[in-house]
Structure formats: C-alpha cells, structure tokens
Design a protein around this nucleic acid. Structure first.
Lengths: 222, 222, 222, 222
DNA sequence: TATGAATGAGGCTTCATTCAT
DNA sequence: AATGAATGAAGCCTCATTCAT
C-alpha cells in the first residue's frame, strides 16, 4: 500500500511526500548532486541543499548522517549511474575496429553529456580520492569499465588487426583522458584560446580526431 | 625595482622580514598557493594561510584585499611561472618531428612536476574560470603556449612531413589533455584501476605512447 | 500482579517482548539507569537509550512521558532497590557495638558495590534534588535508613555502652559521608593522590578505619 | 599604558573592556564557572554563558577553543584558587593536636563556603575525571594538599601524641570525605531527613563532631 | 501496542574580516 | 608597515519529541 501511494502520490506537489522514504532520499540526492557538482564539498551549503529539497534539513541528517556522508552517497550514485549507462552499450557483435570506434565515440559523448559527473570526479581528485577510497563500490567500478575494452582487444589481437602489445588499461586511460579533459577544462581552455573548439563544429572535429588517434594507436600498421 | 628590494633585504635574520614588502608578499603567495592547491578556494582557510606565513593575517588583507583577491593573485602567479618555464624551451633548430616530440615530452614532464599548478587549474575550472576571466593575463597566456606549436606546424607542413590540415590549437588541446589528465585524475584512476600506470615504468610507457600518438597524428602517412 | 505477568511471559523468544508491558518497562529502566548514571540527565541521549533497548523510542514516551519522567522513575527505582537491599540486614540480635559495626561495614560495602546508584545520587544533587523532591517516595526512604540506627542507639544507650548524647541522624550522616565519598570521588582522588587507597589493601584499611572511627565516636569512653 | 587604561577603565560599563584580554578572559571564566557548576558540562549552554559575559560568544572560542576547553580551564582555575586558599593557612607553630584541629576546621569551612568548587568536582567525577586527567596541574595539586598533614603527623608522632601508624593520606581522605559530603549531598540529605543538620546549630554540631572524630582517630589513646 | 519517518528549535563552532594601537 | 584582539554572520549538526500508519 505504501508503494501504491508512492506511485500515485509522488510528484503531486507539497504534502504528497509524507512517508515516502525512497522519494525523500532520491530527492535529496538529486539536489545535493547538483550543489556539490556546482560548488565542491567545502563550497556547498547544507542550508542551500535543504532549501531546494522538498524536505527539511533535518531529514538530510536523518538519512545521510552528515555533510560528508551525503557527499559520499552523491559520489557513489554518480559513479553507479554512469557505469550503468555504459552497460547498455552493446559492441560484441561488431568487428574490433568498429567496436573500438563505437566505444570511443560513446565515451566522448557520454562524458560530454554528464558534466556534473565530471565535476564530481574533479572535486574528488582535489580531495585525493579520500571519499571514493572509503566506498566499497571501488571493486565493481573497475570491472565494468575495462571489461569491454579487454574483450575488444582480445578479439582485435586474435583477428590480427590490433597490435599484440596493446594494453587495455592504457587504452582506457587514453580514451578517458581525451574525453574527460574535453569537459573538465572547458572553462579555462575557452578563456585562453577562445570558444572555437567548443562550437558544434569544433567538438565534432575533436571527436573525430580522438577516434582516429585511438584507433590508429591500437591497430597494426604495416 | 621590487625585485631589487627583494634581493637586498631578504634574509636579514629573525626580524628581517620587516620592511621587505616584496618578500612578505612572495612569502604569503607561496603559502597561499599551497593551501589553495590543497583545499580549493572554499576549502582554504585564511587563518591557516596566515599561520603558515612569516607575517600576520592583517598583512594578507593589506596586500591582497580579501580571500578572492589572494586567490586571483595565486592563480596568476601560477600561470605566469608555468609559462615562464615553457619559454626556456628552445626547439627552433630541430627538425619538425623532433621538435614536436620534444614539445610533447616537455609538456608531459612539466605537468607531472607541477601538480599544484594542475590542481589550481582544476579548481579554477570548478569555478567556471570565474577568476581567470577577471585577469588581464589572459591575452598573454595564449601567445606563449600555442606559438611554438604553430611554428613547428608551419615548418612541418612546409617540409611536407606534417599533414596540411593539422590545426595547431587542436594539437595543443590533444597534448594538454593527455598531460593534464595524467596528473589531475591520478587519485581516482589509481583507486579504481590500481597504481600500475603510475609506477615509474607505467609513466614511462604512457609518456612514450603519448608522444607516439601525437606525432603519428601530425605526420603525413603514406 | 505486574510481577506475575512479568514472570510468565518473559523470555518467550525473539518476539517474546511484545505484549509484556512490565518486561518492556523494566528493560527500558535498566538501560536508562545505566545511561543516566553514566552521562547525567543532560548528557544522556534518548536515542542512545532507545537503541540499547529491546523496544522502540516510541515506547519510552508511551510509558514514561518524557525524558524527565524517565529519569524520575530511574531515580525512584534506584532508591527503592537500595533500600530493599538494606532491609535484608538483620542486626537486632547482636549487641550494640557489634550491630553498629555490622551496619557500618554493610553500608561501606553496599555503596561500594552500587556505583550506579551513587552516581545517580550525585547527579540528583547537581540538580539540587529537584526530581527527588517530586517523588512521593521521600517519606518512606527516611524510615528504612535511620530506623535501624535508632534501634541500635537505643539499645546501646540503655546498656550504657553508647554515649547518651549520640544522635542517630548525625551518626547516619557520618557513616554515609565516609561510604559515599569513597565511591563518588574515586576518580579525582585517584588522579591527584594515586590509586593506593583504592587497591584491595587500601580499601580494606579504609573500611577498618571507618568502622573504628564510627564506633569510637558512639561508645562511652571512660 | 595598556595596564593604566586597564586599571582606570575596567568596570566602567560597556565599551571600557576593549583591548583588555586578561579582563575578558577572567570575565568569561567567572561566568562559565557559575554556569558549569550550576548545570554540568552537558547542561551548560554556551549561549547562556556568552550572554552573561561582557563579551561575545565568539571571544570564548577565541580564547578557549571550544566548550570542553573552557570547562577544562574552569576546572583548573577552580582547583588552583582552592589550593591557593589552603596555602594561606599557617599551622606550623601550633602543637600537633591544635594544628590538626585547625586544619580540619579550616577544611570543613572552606568546603562549606566554596559550593561551586564542590559541584565542579562532583561533575568532574561524573566524567570519571576525564578532564582533570588532561591537566598538567595534577602533579602540583597533590603536593599542597597533603604536605601540611604530613608535617603535622610527623611532629605529632615525634612528640608521641599521635599514633605511629597514622597515614597522612588516609587522614586526608577522611577529612575530605566528611567535609565534601556535607556540601555535595546536602540537597538529597535534606530532602530525605529534613534540614535539621543544615541549620546553623546542626552545622556547628557536625563540625565539632568531625573535628572530634579525626583528632580522636589520630591521637594515641592510653 | 508498536514502529519508522519526520520535525522545529536550538546547540556548538567556524568563517572571513575589521578594529585599536 | 605591522599586530593581537575583536566581531557578526553563517556554518554544520543534534536534541527531545511527535506523526502516520
């Protein structure tokens, strides 16, 4: 019955949220994600987060303990959602080069459309990964991320189109670097060198180059 | 003139910092750089900065106005020093491919050995470049950075070894991305995928790959 | 009647606490006694008490009204139990001096083995007895405690071994002071003067002295 | 000059306290002593303390760090003042029995007229001496307290009027217990047994008895 | 009788900044 | 040019208690 109420009353405006723990929590997390991504851990304000929430400040502490607890959960959820998005990508039936191409394009676009996630990762790196290191998600993140690349590399090597000494992890680093920097350093890069690379055409061009570079790095040249 | 005062009065013992405005300022800036790089703008504490300084909190406000003023100056000095380091690099007499190789290697190493600068740039990007945009350094930063690449590209194209459609700015973006990410995301990357790529051997390998990729991207393949 | 329910329904397994009001209440009181004794009225936490209970926070409010109501009941129960312990002491058939000796020894030991009670009394004194004064137990507490001493004194005077001007209440004050202080101030006394008086030998010696002093104070010296 | 201003302006109402650190601190300590003695560590309110002060809440944190830091200082000052009061007592020229009598009378009266100190010690014992144990005053407290008794005992034994097996520390424990309990447990004792022992006559009687008991305990009976 | 969710008021503490000398 | 003292505003968090079911 609670669940029914949840389904029917959710989002019906003030008052409809009572006794909907899951709703309250996800509401808080959504707001907090935006605030932390926008202002960092130290810069975010609990009052501000609470105000933008459908509940009270008290409930944040009820469910998340304290500011760091909330930040930790925000970080975990962000990683989880992103990895979940990656899981939907099916490249197993493509030939290695096309699979790699697809993966790079996907990663580039995926980063591009998840700037809040990128910002949270930047913030977490500012903190030397202190909070991610406390999460027991760590183990599972690894798996999903490189597995696909490993599979592609294996097939590419077996079919003789990829170099034998390709290291999937290095490849992953490469793809990540190019896709991540594109989002993370947009502000300063634009300020110093102009917006050209961030126009639609500029981004399309960069995307093409990134794919080219990565593929050319992986394939056997003869 | 300021530098003269700095040279002559510095180090006159315990009370020797009095009456040395330049020395006081550079002392404050050094401490503040470390603190802002370590904790971000919101995370840094004026008290902490003052305590680690040879002077008092009052002097910080005297010379830099307020926290943001201090941060702005820290940011500017950091950019200035890094660009200054780049200026010492002389590649004009090398053939294009070797020049490009040298530039990439230098950039990779330079980023690697200036993590505080990287962190400041990350922090500034978190703030959407709000403070860098106020600086009148912006115009000059552009120059130094891409000029060398433009020269190399020009020569490379003239000599027929570089592709004709190579865009020096895109090339700069590429080199920066790979060099920057290597430092900026070390914490989270290591946590998720282990320290392997950050061992001496791992870094040497990445460095080689980065050079390979960039050069292979620039040169004409036939 | 309450005790009957308590005896028959208690311990019927995991969910066995349901429908056992007396059991629930004594469970709460036991936990609350420990918490209040450990942390004082202001220092104790309702959440903490509830968490250590087999029931929920709601039940505490249901049975005891509020924090002060719970504290009041804890205090009353503590006094009641201690006075009950005293009731088991039978000294009527001993000669006055031996009876007094026995009473002092018992009091000294009884305090020593009920530190939580001592702490509750300390706490109540910090509150100027504000809660004890609300209890209608007050009248009955008096009785038990001094009655025995009065009887002993009466016999001691009649037999000519006690001084005629001995005041039983003063005697009680004396015995209480020495027995109470031994427990109440153990922490600070040990810190300042060392643990010597609180070793087994030290306590035995103090106990002997206390008996000696009190008896020597009561008896007629000639 | 600062000191002059201090002397002349102190206590001249609002505004006269500026730039008088010592005055500010002792003002805070006086207020805090009363509040902690009245309400305990957990029960005292920083806002309440600040309000009764001539300064602001902020200054409390400026000088004492946090609530526990303030409490610690209050405790230390309380012990220091009491021990200082004891130091003024000169018993060296009296014969042993009179000296001991004087010491007991003084202790009884001193405790009686310093109820706030007694309450602070009670509170500290509730906390198991956790804060006193952090103080480096501990060593010095010991000395002052028992030294006088040791001297008296030495002389008493040498002159043959005191028992040879008298332990000055046990004697101190005895005197303290009786003097302390008289103040610490006044509230509950009065509630249960009436105010009789706390009337002027009652206190005089108790005082006499305490002296009698202690002296009779120390002297050689033949 | 029982429970998890919810809450308003108020607690402690910290911040960047300014004042008086 | 320099310093310790001082500050108001705002930060994070916890408390006893009640509500909805």
């Amino acid at each position: 019955m609670v669940e029914v109420a949840l389904e029917t009353e959710r989002g019906t405006g003030r008052g409809g949220w009572k006794q909907d723990p899951a709703g309250v929590q996800s509401d808080i997390l959504a707001v907090a994600t935006a605030e932390f991504a926008a202002n960092g851990l130290a810069g975010a304000r609990m009052d501000e987060i609470a105000a933008k929430t459908r509940t009270s400040k008290r409930m944040i502490y009820y469910y998340f303990g304290d500011k760091e607890g909330l930040y930790r959960r925000v970080l975990e959820e962000a990683y989880r959602k992103v990895r979940e998005g990656e899981r939907n990508l099916d490249l197993e039936n493509l030939p290695p080069v096309e699979a790699l191409t697809g993966l790079v394009e996907f990663t580039f676009d995926h980063h591009s459309s998840n700037p809040d996630f990128i910002r949270l990762v930047m913030i977490e790196n500012i903190h030397h990964g202190a909070f991610l290191s406390q999460s027991n998600l760590i183990g599972s993140l690894n798996a999903g991320a490189v597995e696909k690349l490993e599979a592609i590399c294996r097939r590419g090597k077996k079919e003789g189109v990829f170099r034998d000494d390709i290291d999937p992890l290095e490849l992953h680093w490469l793809i990540s670097a190019l896709s991540f920097f594109n989002v993370s350093n947009r502000a300063t890069f634009s300020l110093i060198f102009g917006e050209r690379l961030y126009s639609a055409a500029g981004q399309a061009s960069l995307r093409r180059h990134v794919v080219t570079m990565v593929v050319r790095f992986a394939v056997k040249l003869d």
